[in-house]
């Protein structure tokens, strides 16, 4: 795997995480009794753009890599969500999250070396 491909994998996983968080944020805005339609639309549209970027970069990567090679990298999205969640919510990462993240990272290293 070239550094550029590695960078694209990181970007696509980050886009997926950002898209999920933005989509949820848009839903939360719309669930309020009084909400700004403009703000909800902007957040929702940004989520769609970010998901589209994730989708097209995925296709570009799948044109070069086996699915069984590329797919496990998506497990990193869970680590990113956990870290972003802990940072935004100002919660400490639990021991279970830390161990699980380390195991996923080790798995991704094994796959990237295969």
């Amino acid at each position: 795997m070239t550094p550029f491909a590695g960078l694209l994998i990181f970007v696509t996983v980050s886009c997926f995480v950002a898209g999920q968080i933005l989509l949820k944020h848009a839903m939360d805005i719309m669930a309020r009794p009084r909400f700004s339609r403009v703000r909800a639309t902007v957040v929702f549209a940004t989520a769609i753009v970010v998901f589209a970027a994730n989708f097209f970069i995925n296709i570009g990567l799948l044109q070069r890599f086996d699915l069984s090679y590329f797919f496990p990298f998506q497990g990193m999205s869970v680590i990113l969500i956990a870290f972003v969640g802990a940072y935004v919510l100002r919660e400490r990462l639990t021991l279970r999250l830390t161990i699980g993240s380390a195991v996923i990272s080790l798995g991704v290293i094994f796959v990237s070396l295969s």
């Binding site: 069984s68 497990g75 869970v78 993240s101 380390a102 195991v103 080790l106 798995g107 991704v108 070396l113």
Partner: peptide, 9 residues
Amino acid sequence: GIALVLLGL
């Protein structure tokens, strides 16, 4: 690697 990712998840 796949098994480790699964275990971690």
